[in-house]
Each structure stands twice: as C-alpha cells, then as structure tokens.
Amino acid sequence: MASLNNIRTRIKLEETEVLHTTSTDFPGNYPGYDDRLNLDEFRKNLKIQISNLDTTTTEFDLIGIDAAIANAFRRILIAELPSMAIEKVHVTENSSVLPDDVLAHRLGLIPLHADPRLFVDKVSSDTKEREDDTLIFKLKVACKKNPKATTDGNDNSKNPYINSNVYTEHMEWIPIGNQATKFKSEDVGPVSHDILIVKLRPGQEIDLKLVCHKGIGRDHAKFSPVCTASYRLMPEIILKKPIYDEDAEQLQKCFTQGVIELEDDNKGHRRAVVSKPRLDMCSREALRYPALKDCIELNKIRDHFIFSIESVGALSPDQLFIDAIKLVMSKCDRLLQEIDGNINN
C-alpha cells in the first residue's frame, strides 16, 4: 500500500531515469481509492504559501493541484496575458549604424510600464491612433561632440560625446486624447531607464515615433508580461538508513548548501539530517556514490509546485497570477457554455 501511495504521489529520481512521471490518480484507476473530484476535499487540500513577493518576482508553493492546471497557469502567463509593447516605429531620421529594422526590433523588446487592462486590442483595419488602444512615444536624440571634454581627462566629463548612448530614458511619452488626464506621467514609460538602445557618434541622429499596442505573448514574445513563469516540483529526500560522519559529509556536499545538515547524536557521531529539501536542484550527485546510493531516495512531490513568476514590470506578479486564474475561469465558462449550447441544440 505504501508503494502504491508512493507511485500516486511521488515522482522518483533514479540515476538514469525518472519514474512515475505521469499522474495516474484518475477515478477508477486504483481499486480502493476514491479519486472522484470532491470539491470539499480539493478545498481542504489546496494550499498556497507565498514565500517571496516583490514588485517583479514572486515564488509561492501551490500544493494540492494537478500538473495540468498548474501548467495551464504557466502557459497562460507566458502566452496569453496581454501587455503593451512597441509595435510600430515611424522613422523620420535614423543615421545610426543600426538599420531601421534592427532598431525597430530592439525597441519592440523594451518592456513598457503601462497597465494593459486599461487598453483594448487594436483593430487591425483601424489605422487611426486612438486613446484607448495606443500609446505613443517620441525618441529624438542627436549626438554631438562634448565641447567641455578635455583630452587630458582632468575634466569631470570625460566622455568626448554628448548623447552617444541612447537609453530608454530618452523616450518621451506623448499623450493622445484623454491620456494626459487618465495616466500620470510616471505610470507610463519604459520599465527601466537604463536599457541601451543604440550608440551614436557625432553627426548621427535618430528621430522616431514609437507606437505601442496591446498584444499577447503567443503573437510575439515582446507582448509576454513575464520574463518567465515556471514551476518545479518540491524535492523530497528520504534517508533510508542513518548516515554518519564521513558519509554524511559526503552527502552534504552532494546537495545544494543547506539541504543536508549534520547534527550530533549523543554517541559522538555526526548524523545527516534533511533540513531544507526545497533548496535542492536535483543534481542527483548523491546517486553517484555507491556508499550513499542505497541509503537515500530522491523524490519529487507530484502535487507540490514551487511556482515562480518574474514579471516584466508592467504588472505585479501576484496580479498577473490572479489574471491568469481569471483567464482560466473564463475559458472554463466558455467551455461550459459551449457544452451547454451543444446539449441544448
């Protein structure tokens, strides 16, 4: 019974293969188990523990959920949540070394600080720039020689050029329609001000109008609101036999620092204890040593997801996750509607 339970709830890491990777706990698969969906049970088992949350990144544990659902959140975060990005570049002047297309591509990848929820999708046939679907920036920079620059380098301004590096801070937001009142100027703009766009030399100049639209990551990676969203399964390290002294030290070295601690037992030996399995990154190093191989078992807990979201900056990661859940819900609703519709028909 214990081994069956193991198969149901654990993924086993062997030296050369991974066992029991797929979930098998669907109804009727195991005699004696009631795997029917039970909302109360699910509610009871579902746990979310946030271990880290700041403006751009978060890590939280998502426990008691199926891989398919966790993966759905991940996929939606990457590909289906909208964000704003520069989509069109109107080039008035570009005498930099970068060709127009390359410059435009670079600009497109700049993460923008603009709440996509306040915008609507651009209708492709509509060429007019509307206040509710478009953001406009201006980027006009000309490089000049620095008259203050001295050759001996004593001057503070050692840089012989002015504006030789064009950063995102040079981007200037141009509100259209009611945008000036709707947004505060610090709410709209590039997420970071020190992204290098292009380098110029005296005489070179760029004069661009940057038009931003709303889009989703499936369309182009620049619209993805996350750097990445991903999860890993919670590692579980089981010491089948007690491990002492040299072997224990060896074992400690096999894992990321902090995973294995040594504690003194009363008999003057040091014994290995698993302290923070969460930190292990599954190098399976311990399995290489014959002495340790039989003493340990490396597992991953099937329904314990350590989820991490790195936001690009427009929205906070928790907000993104909530949006992702909402999107999943709306998809479910849609599916239910379709099913109902079909049944009714």
């Binding site: 293969e17 991974v18 891989a67 966790a70 996929r75 399976r284």
Partner: peptide, 13 residues
Amino acid sequence: LTSGLTGEPLQSY
C-alpha cells in the same frame, strides 16, 4: 525537464 505540453516531468534526463 518538464514538458511544456503536459506539465509533467519527462521520463528521461
């Protein structure tokens, strides 16, 4: 590695 399609780990390293 974890499969991006199913969300479950791949059977081999």
